[in-house]
């Protein structure tokens, strides 16, 4: 006899999910944490639509700062510089970083562990050290500072980030894949282009995105390696806010945040779609 057999038992596999979360300590902490992270950004976003020149008062809704932003030639050319630097540095790093990861994973040679450690070092070294070292090197070699020197300096960390992300994917990949391609008659180059690279594509894409965002964001290394001609966006913004924050910078920040959110969303969508194609039945 089981005395409780008729009483309704909670189903352990499907615990009831309350529709409205009750106010508990964990939910309160969660709310506080999100407020801590995103409140400044929300304030910034709201004030970018403020008609007033000063952040202290709210004079009504306006798009004037966005209009000012898009007619500011200096700002637009700074954005263009930043995009040029990021795109070129990431593109070159994507190729080199991927090859570096494959080389470090696939071949056995003397001092491999040391080589691997050294190649990821830019992730650990403080940016200021890279910036100073690059400047000292460029000056001592009498290389004139320009857009090209910023690109070269950005490649240092872009390369390391892309190589790290691609390496971690490579380690989870079936080591027989390349051999299978060779076995079916592909030359080593064909095997790499037709089998290995497509398998690594999501990781290469993710690494590029990370490197792109870091490059767009970089102030320190750029400011040490920029000559008179180049003026990337972070440097431009920094030089403007030193004389006080104007609402057009708020508007610019909102544009930048939306841009990166769009990029991250796109990356997530690509990842989701490729997963769905490969895993749904």
């Amino acid at each position: 006899m089981r005395p409780n057999s008729s009483a309704p038992q909670p189903d352990p596999t499907h615990p009831p999910i309350p529709l409205m979360p009750r106010l508990t300590w964990p939910s309160l902490f969660t709310a506080l944490m999100y407020a801590f992270m995103y409140f400044p950004i929300i304030v910034l976003g709201v004030y970018s639509f403020n008609d007033s020149r000063y952040s202290a008062s709210w004079d009504g809704f306006s798009l004037r700062w966005y209009r000012a932003l898009f007619s500011d030639r200096r700002l637009l050319s700074a954005l263009q510089d930043s995009l040029t630097i990021a795109v070129v540095a990431v593109a070159i790093s994507a190729v080199l970083g991927t090859l570096m990861a494959i080389g470090l994973a696939r071949y056995r040679f003397r001092g491999k562990a040391l080589y691997r450690g050294v190649s990821y070092l830019p992730l650990i070294i403080p940016d200021i050290a890279i910036a100073v070292a690059t400047l000292v090197f460029l000056v001592s070699m009498a290389v004139p500072l320009s857009l090209a020197t910023i690109i070269a300096a950005h490649m240092v960390f872009c390369l390391a980030y892309i190589a790290v992300v691609v390496s971690s994917r490579l380690q989870r990949l079936d080591p027989n894949l390349e051999e299978a391609a060779l076995d079916l008659g592909a030359t080593p180059t064909q095997a790499m282009i037709q089998v290995l690279i497509p398998q690594l594509a999501p990781a290469i894409f993710a690494g590029c995105l990370l490197a792109f965002v870091l490059s767009m964001d970089d102030l320190l290394i750029s400011s040490f390696t920029a000559g008179g001609g180049a003026n990337p966006l972070p440097i431009e913004i920094f030089s403007r806010v030193r004389t006080g924050v104007k609402p057009d910078i708020n508007a610019l920040s909102v544009v930048l945040i939306l841009g990166s959110a769009l990029l991250a969303g796109l990356a997530e969508y690509v990842r989701y779609r490729s997963d769905r194609i490969r895993q749904s039945t």
Binding site: E179, A180, L182, D183, P188, A201
Partner: peptide
């Protein structure tokens, strides 16, 4: 002679299918 020029084909234990 390298693998890609040998008249043999292999079925791997892990299958090594190209999942893309």
């Amino acid at each position: 002679v390298p693998a890609h020029r040998r008249p043999v084909n292999t079925v791997f234990q892990s299958y090594a299918l190209f999942d893309h």
